[in-house]
Write a protein that binds this DNA or RNA. Structure first.
Lengths: 258, 258
DNA sequence: AATACATATTGTTATAATGACACTATAAAT
DNA sequence: ATTTATAGTGTCATTATAACAATATGTATT
């Protein structure tokens, strides 16, 4: 008993003070993709890094240690809530990053010592998430956070560039096989909005007629008896996504590709 | 210093005696798929479980704690080596299982107490692997291990049925998009062997002519100037897989599916 | 009321991919 | 020479794809 107390005192930690014990060597990092104004964004947070007498601003993805009584999915939802104020958001684990030196690899660049992060080894589970930026109250954004253009991500801390690359790769891969795109659209949307979203994510363009012919075959894409309002041109028909129909008509595709 | 020693002594552990320190809360479990004789198998290991005065045999996938100085990929390769004697085998992480009660969920069935596993919480990273059973020296098999039919997996320990389901799902998903199937074939193989392998994994059948038309378009499938030997019928042409050509001709497919 | 504006909506054609279907070829064993 | 067992191959009807441009319809402006 004495023993345990001594150790706790020797390694004080804000989460211990809050009585929220975490697992020591596992964290979750979240790559939160947001879509708005035909642009794909990603949420990053800054930290001031002392370097050689100067101070640099360095960026990384929001992350947290896993608490002793939660699943990693709960950890990621907690991070989402903290960062965006949103709950019940789609999150998906995409890869575990476990290089024993992953927190130290960039140390030489920063000449930087932060014992709490670098003395111990932390394995992190990468999650990506998709949100519609119209749903986010930007005044809720933590002050050191910002939405960066997904196509202009610069140098990040630790192995976070690698985490970003894997997240983006996985996002695209999954989008080709599941209708995740609906997570990024409002509940009612036009086909043009949907097309622009695909184009933003895959960094390409599609022929409008061929695109529509294709998506019109999705049984879970429901044309509504409603049209766009507030536009100064011909308003487009609104559509919605029917999750039930998707679940029911979803068939695994076993035709392998050459 | 005294403090640390006391704790070590209070929690003796075979890996500590071997001077191989592991992270306390992270393990790797491996679903090793093997293919032989047109059958898809998976390696499971048994353990005797005392239950109400009797002893039951329970099954699970091979797994291990992650060592302090290795990546989880190294952990999985270590497990593969221990179980099959094979090195440089394809392994792939597919999902993290982090339910805080994952080791305890089936306790009530076994009325079983195994403090080393159940007192602490362990998050596990699931890996799947593919091997050709012809490459395995079965005399190397650890005595409590066996190759079970992948289509007849019974109740497993802990959350290992869930792990198996996710592994199989991911295996199939990946096989549709990457030529992993070559991991399960000998270096030189016939088109019929390849077809039967796909049929075993996807639990279906394909039309021979359509199948051949399709795979003949793979630029990395190389017809050899060699034919099968030792068969009492018309011998088939042998083919091999050219990894270089695969890497070079590999293009991401961004045509999304309806 | 007429016109400009901006985006929505729609169809054809040529090419490629797919799915269904059955017969001939050939090496080994007898 | 015959049997046996599997290898290897082609057609046709249907469906999916890619490339391509003109018309329709609301709001805003005059």
């Amino acid at each position: 008993m004495n023993t345990l107390k001594e150790i706790t005192i020797n390694q004080p930690d804000i989460e211990t003070f809050l009585s929220i014990e975490t697992l020591s060597s596992i964290s979750v990092d979240c790559v939160i993709f947001g879509y708005d104004d035909n642009k794909l964004k990603v949420l990053i947070r800054s930290e001031y890094i002392p370097n050689n007498g100067e101070v640099y601003l360095a960026w990384k993805f929001p992350g947290n240690k896993v608490r002793k009584c939660e699943t990693i999915e709960e950890t990621s939802s907690r991070i989402l809530k903290e960062q965006t104020g949103l709950e019940n958001i789609f999150v998906k684990q995409f890869m575990v990053f476990s290089d024993p030196n992953r927190l130290r690899r960039k140390m030489y660049e920063y000449e930087w010592i932060k014992p709490s992060l670098t003395d111990d080894r932390v394995i992190t589970v990468g999650f990506y998430s998709l949100i519609n930026l119209n749903d986010v109250d930007n005044s809720m954004l933590i002050e050191d956070a910002k939405w960066a253009d997904a196509y202009e991500i610069k140098e990040l801390m630790f192995d976070h560039n690698e985490i970003f690359d894997e997240a983006f790769k996985k996002l695209r891969y999954d989008l080709l096989h599941e209708p995740l795109v609906f997570e990024l659209l409002p509940v009612k949307f036009t086909l043009t909005q949907m097309q622009k979203l695909y184009e933003a994510i895959f960094d390409t363009t599609y022929d409008k007629r061929n695109y529509r012919r294709k998506v019109n075959k999705m049984p879970y894409l429901i044309p509504l008896d409603e049209i766009q309002t507030g536009v100064s041109h011909k308003p487009a028909r609104l559509y919605s996504f029917d999750r039930d129909i998707y679940e029911k008509t979803r068939t695994e595709r076993f035709d392998f590709r050459v």
